[in-house]
Computed example of a mutant assay.
Amino acid sequence: MGRFAVLGGASVTNTGLSIVTGDLGVSPGVSITGFPPGQVNGSIHNSDAAAVAAHADLITTYNDAVGQIPDAGITGDLGGQTLPPGVYNAASSIGLTGTLTLDAQGDRNAEWIFQIGSTLTTATASHVLLVNGATARNVIWLIGSSATLGTDTDFAGRVLAQISITVNAGVTVNGQVLAINGSVTLDTNRITRPW
């Protein structure tokens, strides 16, 4: 799944002029729509060998990360918080309104894992800010059901959802959006896989 910016389990659907940098695929489903007008700076994989392998890798990565022992619990809304590296666990849903700052404290290898029991929902124009050496590839969001990124959100990290991911209009993702069983829905977005 490393080279994929977008991977859906059932389908990938796009509206508008989305730009995906990295590969885009679906497996085990076979439905990819909206490209064009969407643009993929990479390859499109419709349930081919690469997509099947990425889907299997996604499940393994998800299960490994879910099995990590939490350093701290989180509840409610993450807006306004600054979090050091660690494993954060939420029993149910988490929201993000405003800005969440992830502070690597000068360690470029710093990692964050967010174990979210059900849903992740960001409000309009929310932000995940990476500071002091934090990198998007070292941030994993594990979503027990589905994620919804609100209009004009500026998001960072690898979103791994059990079911679906809805990326609303104007959202920018520095990372990956990867759905195990359901669909990824895009709408005039810019999604860039971290290198």
Rank of each mutant, 00 (worst) to 15 (best):
D77L: 06
V12Q: 01
R193A: 15
T15G: 09
A90C: 12
P36E: 03
I191H: 07
A134V: 01
G95L: 10
T172E: 14
A161I: 02
G86A: 07
I94V: 08
T13H: 12
A72V: 03
L129S: 15
G175Q: 10
Q115S: 01
T13M: 15
R137F: 11
V40C: 10
N14M: 01
I59T: 09
A56C: 09
T188F: 10
F4K: 00
A90Y: 07
D48H: 04
Q176C: 05
S92E: 15
N109W: 11
G22L: 05
L17M: 13
L7V: 00
L130P: 02
L149V: 08
A5T: 00
G150N: 13
T122D: 06
T148P: 05
G117L: 07
V131D: 07
A10I: 04
A125V: 10
Q81S: 12
R3Y: 04
V26T: 05
T15E: 12
T60I: 11
H55R: 13
T33R: 05
G95Y: 12
G8W: 00
L129E: 12
N174C: 11
T119E: 11
S43K: 09
V173A: 09
A104D: 01
L100F: 08
W112H: 00
T82H: 14
P70M: 10
S47V: 03
T153C: 14
N189Y: 04
L178C: 02
G25M: 05
N14D: 08
S93K: 13
F35R: 00
V167D: 06
L178W: 11
G9F: 03
S93C: 08
V159G: 02
A10H: 14
L78R: 09
E111R: 01
D187C: 12
R108N: 15
I165R: 12
V66N: 12
A50L: 08
N63K: 11
G79K: 10
A49W: 03
T119L: 03
N168V: 13
N132E: 09
D154K: 14
T82W: 13
G25E: 03
A51I: 00
A125C: 13
T75G: 06
V66Y: 08
I143N: 06
A50C: 01
T135C: 04
A90T: 07
T166M: 05
A123C: 14
N138H: 15
L149Y: 12
